[in-house]
Nucleic acid binder design. Structure first.
Lengths: 249, 249
DNA sequence: AAGTGGTCTAGACCACTCC
DNA sequence: GAGTGGTCTAGACCACTTA
C-alpha cells in the first residue's frame, strides 16, 4: 500500500472542476506515478486540498471507478486498480456504409430467398429449430462492381413483424432490419475458413482461399431476431480497432 | 417529436433512487415504448412526479446519456437517441489463460530470439524503422502438447526497460509485458490468411490452411512498446463476443 | 468506535439556445 | 426572455468495514 503525495493532484483550470480532478488523477495513474495498489487520498482530504465540495470530488472518483482505474470500498478507501484484461473492439458498420467509406460504389443483389420452415441443412448451420418460420436469404454485396461480401441470413418471422411483406428491393436486409427491428443482445464470432466451391464462384475467388467468417446472431429479450453469416475474402478484408486499456481513446 | 406520458416512469423501490429512475427510463427505451425521437420529460417534471431532488434525477439522466440511450441539449431538452452503430467486442486474454480456460495443458517454447536492429524483412512486416533497437522473438504456444498459436513479436528496447536482461524462461513475452510495461493505446487488426510453408510446419497444419491473423501494436504515449502477430489455425479458433446495442450485457 | 464511501436534499448560479 | 440542462455547494444521514 504505497503512500501518495496529496499535492501531486494538480488542477489545470480547464473545464468543470470534477473533470479537472478526474483528469489529474487519471494522469497520475496512467503515467505510472501511482502504480496499482497505491492508495488514493480520501475524499475529505481532496476536498480540503482542492477547495471543492465533497460531491464534486466524489463525482470525479465515481467516474474513475466506473472506468476501472480505481477500486473503492467503504472504510478501506480507494486504491489504484490493476490494468483490466484487455479487449478489442471493432465497429460493425452496415456493409453499404463500409463500402462507401472506402470510396467505392455500392450495389447488392438478392440471389435467393425462401420463406417458411428452414431446410435441415440451414437449420443445422444456424442452430435453429426446423419448426420456426423464417426468411432465408442469400445476398451478394459488391464494391465497384466486384464481389465484396457474401451474406447468408435468417430472419425470424416471430421476431420481425412485416418481414413477409418486404422484398428488400430498396434496402439490403441488414440495413432494413436496423430500422424495422429491436434487439437487446447480440453475439459475434469471427473465424477463418477456406471458401467452398459455390461461395468461391460467387465471390470470384479461388476455392479454398482464406476468408473471414463473421457470424452474428441477435435477440430481443429471448426472441431470436436474425442470424447472419458474412463471408469476407481475406485478401480484401481486415477489421481494425483502436483503444486504450480503459476503453476507447 | 412524440409526446411522452410522464406517469409511464415507475420506480420499483429496489436500490438507490437514481438507479431506479435510470432503469425505469432505460426500460421504456429498450422496450420500444419510447422510440427514438421521443422527448423525455424535463428534469423538473420528473422531480415533481417522482418526489426526488433535481440532482438525483439529473444523475440518472446523465448516466443514460453517457450510455448513449438519450441525447440532451440545453433549452431543447432530452430525446431518445437512435441506436448507435453497433460494435463487437472481444476479450483478448493472455494465451496461457485462454488455454487453461479450455481445460487444456499450456506450454510454450521460444523458437528464436535476436536483439538489436531488425532485418529489412522484419522491419517491413511490422512497419518499424531499421534504426530502432528491438528484441525479435518467435514463440510457439501449445495446448495439450499440440501447436496452438504461433507468435512473432517485436519488443521496443526504448519502450520497455529491462527487456535485454529478460530471457522469458519463466513467463512468455506477452504475459511478462503485462507486468513490466505500461501502454496507453493499442491497435488490433484481424484478418484471414493462408499458412505459409514454414508457419504450417511449425503449427502442424497443411500449407495454405486458413488461419486467423491477429496483429496487435501498443504504444505508451507516442513511444512504441510492442508489436505482435498471432497466427491461429482457423479450424481451432474462434473469437466470440456478446453484448447489447449499448454495451456489455 | 471511527473512518470511509454512497446517497440524497435544497438551493444556487450559469450556459446555451430557441422563440 | 425564458426554458432547459450543467455545475457546484454545504450539509446530512446511512452502510459498510476495519481496528
Amino acid at each position: 500500500m504505497t503512500e501518495t503525495r496529496l499535492d501531486a493532484v494538480k488542477l489545470d483550470g480547464a473545464g468543470p472542476v470534477y473533470d479537472q480532478i478526474r483528469r489529474a488523477i487519471r494522469d497520475l495513474v496512467v503515467s505510472g506515478a501511482w502504480p496499482p495498489g497505491t492508495s488514493v487520498p480520501p475524499e475529505h482530504a481532496l476536498m480540503e486540498q482542492l477547495g471543492a465540495s465533497r460531491m464534486t470530488v466524489h463525482r470525479a472518483l465515481v467516474q474513475l471507478a466506473r472506468e476501472g482505474l480505481i477500486t473503492r470500498r467503504r472504510r478501506s478507501g480507494t486504491i489504484v486498480a490493476s490494468p483490466p484484461a484487455s479487449h478489442a473492439m471493432f465497429d460493425i458498420l452496415s456493409i453499404p456504409e463500409e463500402v462507401r467509406r472506402l470510396g467505392q460504389h455500392y450495389a447488392y443483389a438478392i440471389l435467393s430467398r425462401s420463406d417458411g420452415r428452414p431446410s435441415a441443412e440451414v437449420a443445422e448451420r444456424f442452430g435453429i429449430k426446423r419448426s420456426e418460420r423464417v426468411a432465408h436469404l442469400i445476398v451478394l454485396h459488391r464494391a465497384d462492381g466486384k464481389p465484396h461480401v457474401l451474406e447468408e441470413r435468417i430472419i425470424h418471422a416471430a421476431g420481425v413483424p412485416g418481414v413477409g411483406e418486404e422484398d428488400f428491393a430498396e434496402t439490403p436486409p441488414g440495413d432494413w432490419l436496423l430500422k424495422h427491428s429491436l434487439w437487446s443482445q447480440a453475439e459475434h464470432a469471427i473465424s477463418a475458413v477456406g471458401a467452398g466451391a459455390e461461395d468461391a464462384a460467387l465471390l470470384d475467388i479461388a476455392e479454398g482461399e482464406p476468408c473471414l467468417l463473421v457470424e452474428r446472431r441477435t435477440w430481443n429479450q429471448a426472441q431470436p431476431v436474425t442470424a447472419v453469416r458474412l463471408l469476407h475474402p481475406g485478401s480484401r478484408h481486415r477489421f481494425v480497432g483502436r483503444f486504450g486499456p480503459y476503453g476507447a481513446v
